[in-house]
Every structure is written in C-alpha cells, then in structure tokens.
C-alpha cells in the first residue's frame, strides 16, 4: 500500500541477513543452477526456439555487442536521462518535502493527497509527456522527474516530520544551532529516509527510462532491446537484457554500500544481537 513502509522494511530485511559474504557460495550455486536449467529447457525444446536462445548464443552476442559503439551510446543515452532526472528529483523533492514536513498542519493536510499521487502508476504519464516532448531525452527526463520525485519528496517530508520533540528540545536547550544543528541533528535524522526515498526513486526512474524508450522509441537501451526484438535478433536482444539487468544490479549495490557506510548507527544496519 505504501512504498515508504515497504522500502523501510526492505532496508531492514536486507541487513537482517547480515552474514552477507558467508552465503555467497550458495547464491552463486543457485545462479549456476538457474542458468543450467534454462539451457536444458531450450536444448530439449521445452522452451520454443522462436523465443528462447541457448546460453552460448546469448554469451556470444553479449561478447559481440559489448564492443560496439552503438551499445555504449544507447547505455549513455539511458543513463544520462535517468541521472539528470534523478538529480532533479533530489533537488526538487528534498527541499520541498522538508518544507512540507516542517509544519505539522501542512504535513497532515498534504499527506493523503501525496499518497494518492504516488499510488498512481507513473507509466500512465508516458502518453502525456510524449505529447509535449516527442520521443526525446527531454521526454525521458521529464518522465523520470514526474514519476520519481514522489518517493524522495515523501520520504524527506516524513524524515523532517520525525525530527519533532525531545531531540529538537535538547538541541535548542544546548544551543546547538545553524550549520551544526543541520549537520549533527537534522541531516542524520533525515538521511535514512532520504536514502530509502532515493533508492525507490532511482529504481523507478530506471524502469521509466527503459520502459519509455521501448514504447516511444526514444533513444536508449530500451529502444535497442525493442529494435533487436523486431529485427528478430533474439540473441542480441537477450544480451541487451543482460546489460540492463547488470545496470539495475549496480544501482542497487551502490545504494546498499552507501546505506551501510552512512547508516552504520541505524537500527536497520546494526549487527543482529538477539
């Protein structure tokens, strides 16, 4: 129902399995097993040859495509619009959310509306932004902003709202103000919320970028995947899907590493003691 709760819970569960490295081996084993079963299913004809390609074929296509300028142009196009959009999300969402969260009355009155806006699936915006911008980088950026700004805005609002009470009184009583208040009290309180929001925004933005490229033929990885499919280059299509998957994985890893570093004090990141 609410991305906030789910996202926060996500942070928690991830670290609950904090033995990270120790279960790397079984994880790898599972990957190998899945790949082997895929290959077996294609080879035995359970999966039709009209849609599935054997591992060796995908690997070969991947080897070829990695050295083409076309791939990196497409990846560059996708990542540029995604990153620019994400930057705008942060620049707009964080201050605006902070402003809304600061006053209790404002917070309570906008909360419901924002939850509603966010619950609307952002892909419905694609036809709308296409009308305004055509299949271009600008369209994708706009889409990422429109769709991705909500999680980060709402998290920023929750974070600042959470600041109330004892902590603020203590800071005021000890005359901790200005930049030091910002750096020592405000930011650490809001940061866990912001990182969760940014992670959700980032994943959503990537989805919107690649998805919109597929449906509108704006330049980028999504369009390359679509083109490969329509020209019946199945191995090439799978290779590009793998590239997209790796990008998604990298994005997630970057966020996990940042969260672990920045939030070592946070309950979600503490070693499990009990």
């Amino acid at each position: 129902m609410s991305v906030t709760v789910q996202a926060l819970r996500g942070v928690r569960t991830r670290t609950a399995g904090a033995g990270r490295c120790s279960n790397l081996a079984p994880q790898l084993a599972l990957v190998v097993l899945l790949l082997a079963s895929w290959d077996l299913l294609v080879r035995t004809g359970v999966l039709p040859a009209s849609g599935a390609v054997r591992l060796s074929g995908i690997a070969g296509a991947l080897g070829d495509v990695v050295f083409t300028a076309a791939l990196w142009t497409a990846v560059g196009d996708s990542l540029t619009s995604w990153l620019v959009g994400l930057a705008v999300c942060v620049l707009v969402g964080v201050p605006l959310g902070a402003l809304l969260g600061w006053r209790d009355g404002v917070y309570r009155s906008v909360r419901l509306v924002l939850e509603f806006v966010r619950a609307t699936p952002p892909v419905v915006l694609i036809p709308f932004v296409l009308l305004f911008f055509g299949p271009s980088q600008e369209m994708k950026i706009f889409l990422v902003v429109l769709g991705g700004v909500w999680p980060i805005l709402i998290q920023s609002m929750y974070g600042v709202h959470d600041l109330e009470g004892t902590l603020v009184h203590t800071a005021r009583a000890y005359r901790i103000r200005g930049p030091r208040f910002f750096a020592s009290v405000l930011m650490p309180t809001v940061l866990p919320y912001l990182l969760t929001g940014a992670r959700v925004s980032a994943v959503l933005g990537l989805l919107l970028t690649i998805g919109s490229e597929m449906v509108t033929s704006a330049p980028g990885l999504g369009r390359a995947i679509f083109d490969a499919q329509t020209s019946n280059d199945l191995a090439g299509m799978y290779a590009l899907v793998v590239v997209a998957g790796v990008i998604g994985l990298l994005v997630n890893t970057v966020f996990t590493v940042i969260e672990r570093k920045v939030l070592s004090w946070h309950p979600s990141q503490r070693p499990v003691t009990s």
Binding site: G165, T166, L167, H169, T170, R172, Y174, R175, S184, H266
Partner: peptide
C-alpha cells in the same frame, strides 16, 4: 527569552535525547 547558556537540561526520555549516530 531563549535557553540560556547557564542552564543544562536532562529530559525524561533519554533514549530520544541522545543522538544515536554519535
């Protein structure tokens, strides 16, 4: 008119008056 320098405050809710990130 504002919390004076000569005064220190200890609140009931210690768990929320300390900063967990420090």
């Amino acid at each position: 008119t504002e919390p004076p320098r000569q005064l220190a405050l200890v609140l009931q809710d210690y768990s929320r008056s300390l900063l967990p990130w420090m």
